[in-house]
Deep mutational scan, measured.
Amino acid sequence: MQAFVKTLTGKTITLEVEPSDTIENVKAKIQDKEGIPPDQQRLIFAGKQLEDGRTLSDYNIQKESTLHLVLR
Rank of each mutant, 00 (worst) to 15 (best):
T55P: 05
K11L: 10
V5G: 01
P19I: 08
T7D: 06
L50H: 00
E51Q: 11
L71E: 07
M1P: 02
E16G: 05
V17Y: 04
D52W: 03
R54W: 11
I61E: 02
L15S: 00
P37I: 05
I13C: 02
V5C: 04
K6F: 08
Q62T: 14
L56S: 00
H68W: 15
D39M: 09
V26Q: 00
L8N: 12
K48T: 13
E64L: 10
S57E: 12
T12D: 03
A3Q: 05
L43Q: 00
L67H: 01
L43P: 00
P38A: 15
P37Y: 06
P19K: 07
K6R: 11
E16R: 10
K48Y: 10
K48Q: 14
E18V: 13
Q40M: 12
P38C: 09
L15E: 00
G47R: 04
I61C: 03
E16L: 14
E18M: 14
K29F: 06
L69Y: 01
I30M: 03
H68E: 10
Q31G: 07
A28Q: 13
D39T: 10
P38T: 15
T12Y: 09
Q41P: 01
V26P: 00
E64P: 04
L43M: 03
P38G: 08
G53C: 07
L50F: 02
F45Y: 14
T66H: 15
M1D: 03
L69T: 01
A46M: 14
T66L: 10
A28M: 14
R54K: 14
D32H: 11
Q41M: 14
E34H: 08
S65H: 08
R54P: 03
E51S: 08
T7N: 05
T55D: 03
Q49C: 13
V5Y: 02
R42D: 09
K27E: 01
T22M: 07
T7K: 04
V70A: 08
T22Q: 04
Q41N: 02
F45K: 03
A3H: 02
K11G: 07
K29N: 03
E64K: 08
D21F: 07
V26E: 00
D52C: 05
I61S: 03
R42S: 12
L67V: 07
I44W: 15
Q41W: 06
D39W: 14
G10Y: 04
K27Y: 04
D21N: 07
D21M: 12
L67C: 01
T12F: 10
G10L: 03
D32Y: 10
R54L: 11
P19N: 06
E64F: 13
T22W: 05
E18F: 14
T12P: 03
T22L: 11
K48V: 14
L71S: 08
V70K: 08
A28P: 00
V26W: 01
T14R: 10
K63W: 10
E51R: 09
D32Q: 14
G53W: 13
K27D: 00
Y59S: 02
I36D: 02
T9E: 12
Q41L: 06
P37M: 07
E16T: 13
V26K: 00
D21G: 03
Q31R: 13
L15M: 05
M1N: 04
V5T: 01
R72N: 12
L8R: 13
T12W: 11
L71N: 06
K27R: 05
K33L: 13
E18C: 12
P19L: 11
G47S: 05
K63H: 15
K48C: 09
V26T: 03
L71M: 09
R42I: 15
L50E: 00
L71V: 12
I30F: 02
Q31E: 10
S65P: 07
Q2Y: 14
G53L: 08
L56M: 05
L67D: 01
D21A: 06
E16Y: 13
P19Y: 08
T55C: 06
Q49Y: 14
N60K: 10
Q49W: 15
G35W: 03
F4N: 05
L56N: 00
Y59H: 03
R42N: 12
V5K: 01
V17D: 00
L69E: 00
R42A: 10
I30W: 00
H68N: 08
I23A: 03
E24I: 11
V5R: 01
S57R: 13
P37G: 05
L69K: 00
G35S: 05
A46R: 15
K63E: 12
S57D: 08
K6Q: 11
Q41H: 04
S65C: 07
G47Y: 05
Y59P: 00
L71A: 08
N25H: 12
I44M: 13
E64M: 11
I30G: 00
Q62P: 12
L43E: 00
E34F: 11
S20M: 11
F4A: 04
G35V: 02
Q31A: 13
M1I: 10
Q49E: 15
V17Q: 00
D58N: 05
L56H: 00
F4T: 07
I23N: 01
A46W: 09
M1K: 04
T55G: 02
V26S: 00
V70R: 11
S20V: 05
I36S: 04
T66A: 06
E64N: 15
Q40I: 12
D32M: 14
S57Q: 13
Q49H: 12
V5L: 04
G35A: 05
K11Y: 13
V70G: 05
R42C: 14
R42P: 01
I23E: 01
Q2C: 09
Q2G: 05
A46N: 15
I30N: 01
A46V: 06
D32S: 12
A3G: 03
G47F: 05
T55R: 11
S57I: 08
S20I: 06
L43I: 09
K33Y: 08
L43R: 00
Y59I: 04
T14K: 09
L71G: 06
D39S: 13
I23L: 04
D21C: 05
L15Y: 02
T55V: 07
L56D: 01
L43V: 04
P37C: 07
T12M: 12
I13H: 03
R42G: 06
K33V: 12
T22A: 04
A28Y: 13
K11R: 12
L50T: 03
I30L: 07
E34L: 15
K11D: 07
E24T: 08
